[in-house]
Amino acid sequence: MNLSLTLTINGETREIVLDDPRVTLLDLLRERLGLTGAKKGCDRGQCGACTILVDGQRINSCLALAISYHGSSITTVEGLAQGGTLHPVQQAFIDHDGFQCGFCTPGQVMSAVGLIAEGQTGDDPERVREAMSGNICRCGAYMGITEAVIEARGKMSETKPEKAA
């Protein structure tokens, strides 16, 4: 069985040979590639802590069989900041206290980046709440999260126009 695959991770193309067909993208990143930003909160697609972008779309990496994603381009939270500059979503999460313990935060941040790219919510807090509901925050930082998404979206749309909803 051929368990080799090519992935572009945070801009870097990598040839990977899996030791086991069962490996999920999440466990590949966390346990084999040293990218522990994405978190395992439930491992069953029920919490969103493992959210990453695959080909620009946010997904739960815990329910993604790594071998099946051959040829994909992946962005994790580690790949978001450019140099020393935080992504607008990251900065907005800090400014609006959109987290407490920080465990769900990489997933929230990646989900927010995906949400903004999807261009469906505008700056309607209700739409943002709904669109962020796949990311559970047990500390209850939802107020800050919603504010942060709206602010980051606004800042990002100042620099590049959002796709029409």
Binding site: T36, G37, V77, A81, Q90, I94, F99, T105, P106
Partner: peptide, 12 residues
């Protein structure tokens, strides 16, 4: 703001 904020939003 949280002094551990950058670590938390960058996955570090």
């Amino acid at each position: 703001t949280r002094r551990d904020g950058v670590l938390k939003v960058t996955g570090a």
